[in-house]
């Protein structure tokens, strides 16, 4: 697929690329549909209830029915909302969520763009979503959504710092910002072992970035009713929901690539199994962790959330960078 990008653009190339993008979109939408289904099922099982089981066999079509309902719903907009921004916000939130998937290498040969600065691209684009969230909170002209929007802006900006800092260690070790190179550098040992602290920091910061439990403050339904999307319904709400789950897809891919060795098998002997299977397995493990946490954790308090990011995670990430830099220099014989 990468080779397509490098050819001179012709009609055929463009159509092929567009088809590939649509195929990825279909995969992502399929993932979102069944991630929501399994989220509800797994949390249901953990809470000793069966979960969705009415629509379709085993409730498999539940999410399809839910989405259909959202799409067919009347598009309501509060009278005093800012018309243009209100419509723009869901697009701002969803657009980058899908765009970040362009750099993800899912296996040796499945992947789209092979950017030299893949990590940077992901982090830079994913920040745009915050704008969507603030815009939504502001444009709705609702006090709850304003508080929710501001909270989530503060949260996502704060946690972006330790998130980026924790990746620096890996970049130092690999010497590259390219996601493919990072995976290939994990042939001997996955980054989760030498970079364990970074992994912990990244995992926690990723939860906060995704606005998922225990950091689901922006939409804390028991405090802020529904946070920034309180006034959204129907299709626009579906866009926010989609953005959230697509980010889960993106973050799951990223964590697999950065820390869990991407498509590499855990031991060389299992190399005959295609890389994509390993990728899906590791990725599913991360997604399961999300559901598991959601079934267990209470929500952290807003002020503690901030101090945890700046006083807890950031120092750990910085120390990790320092230690990594020291060891990398040492092994290069700089001392």
């Amino acid at each position: 697929m990468t080779s397509l990008l490098e050819q001179t653009p012709s009609l055929l190339n463009v159509v092929l690329l567009a088809l590939a993008a649509v195929a990825l979109l279909a995969v992502v939408l399929g993932f979102v549909t069944y991630a929501i289904y399994f989220e509800r099922k797994i949390i249901g099982w953990m809470q000793l209830r069966p979960g969705p089981n009415r629509v379709g066999p085993l409730g498999l079509l539940q999410t399809v029915a839910d989405v259909a309902k959202l799409l067919l719903k009347e598009d309501t907009r509060p009278k005093s909302a800012d018309k243009a921004l209100f419509a723009l916000a869901p697009v701002l939130a969803y657009g980058p969520a899908f765009a970040v998937l362009a750099v993800m290498p899912f296996s040796e040969n499945i992947g789209f763009a092979d950017l030299g600065i893949g990590v940077l691209y992901y982090i830079a684009l994913s920040s745009i979503t915050i704008l969507g969230v603030i815009t939504a909170g502001w444009a709705s002209n609702n006090k709850w959504s304003l508080i929710g929007g501001l909270r989530s802006a503060a949260q996502m900006i704060s946690y972006e710092v330790p998130l980026v800092m924790s990746v620096v260690g890996i970049i130092l070790m690999t010497g590259s910002l390219n996601l493919r190179d990072i995976v290939e550098a994990q042939r001997d040992v996955w980054n989760i072992i030498p970079q364990f602290f970074a992994f912990c920091v990244f995992l926690i910061a990723a939860q906060a970035e995704l606005n998922r439990s225990p950091f689901d403050l922006p939409e804390a339904e028991s405090e802020l009713v529904a946070g920034y999307h309180v006034e959204y319904s129907g299709f626009r709400f579906a866009m926010f929901m989609l953005a959230e789950y697509v980010y889960m897809f993106g973050m799951g891919s990223l964590i697999t690539i950065l820390f869990l060795g991407g498509w590499l098998p855990p031991i060389e002997a299992l190399g005959f199994i295609p890389g994509i299977v390993w990728f899906i397995l590791k990725f599913s493990l991360y997604v399961f962790l999300q559901f598991w946490l959601r079934a267990t954790m209470p929500r952290i308090r807003a002020d503690q959330l901030m101090s945890f990011a700046w006083k807890g995670l950031l120092p750990v990430a910085l120390i990790n960078i320092l230690l990594t830099a020291f060891f990398v220099s040492y092994s290069n014989g700089s001392f």
Partner: peptide
């Protein structure tokens, strides 16, 4: 109370 705090699980265990 746990539901207010943000944990959804305890509610169902307590109600069982």
């Amino acid at each position: 109370y746990l539901l207010d705090i943000g944990a959804i699980g305890p509610f169902l265990y307590a109600f069982r």
